[in-house]
Design a binder for these strands. Structure first.
Lengths: 114, 114
DNA sequence: ATTTTATATTAGCATATGCTTATATAATAA
DNA sequence: TTATTATATAAGCATATGCTAATATAAAAT
């Protein structure tokens, strides 16, 4: 029995969201790690406001989840999203960004609340 | 040895192109069939001008190829595109549209130059 | 050569997008 | 309470997008 496929409309709107450097990078980052806003600001070299607005779009679409931990709000990939599998398929075709997160860690800029 | 992955920028620009109902539908249609402009106009119920402009974007990006056959210009998916595999992965997540083409055939509106 | 047919191109317009700057909010620290 | 920190929101603006209407092009048919 085949899984239900989202309508073209829904898929197109997800692709539209991912069709932006910043948002595609964000989704690539949160696929395997939780990140907070200030980390995105550092990694993407963008203003806090701009990052925040991109995150809002991703959150409104349900592609990412947010969770407060003390000072910070952490974002993570929402594997429950109807297009989550497609997004993961897409991410297999772009270079992973773990190296950047490791660099952030070495620079002492990684936030860890565990 | 792993295949070279397009940069995030390049992937984002492909996704941006596909992040539109009309263009995603077109790419879905040409994945398995050659189609000419008037067929898209019929299938998508859009103006010829609008379809033509979408096709131009897809062609400029190299995602589709065009080939003249008599009266008509046929468009087909370009499997040589650096992101062709990703596009095929994406299309696996949307309902196929073969039924619509078959209906067109039954209506006697399918163009065939073979 | 003229007309017809299929497609492409252009201009114009309304709406969407992504950024910056400034300000608001909400949790923590002092 | 007040100040600080992390994040969100709003306003404004320049640019991008997708459509329509009108016109151009190019091959085919007459």
């Amino acid at each position: 029995m085949e899984k239900i496929k989202p309508e073209i409309r829904d898929t197109a709107s997800v692709l539209k969201l991912l069709g932006d450097n910043t948002r595609l990078s964000i989704v690539g980052l949160v696929q395997n790690h939780e990140c907070c806003v200030c980390e995105f600001v550092e990694l993407l070299q963008m203003s806090q406001s701009s990052v925040s607005q991109h995150l809002r779009k991703l959150r409104d679409a349900g592609l990412v989840k947010e969770q407060r931990k003390g000072h910070w709000i952490f974002y993570s990939f929402n594997r429950q999203h109807p297009s989550a599998e497609m997004v993961e398929d897409i991410l297999r075709h772009v270079p992973d960004q773990n190296e950047k997160l490791q660099q952030l860690e070495r620079d002492g800029l990684r936030i860890n609340c565990d």
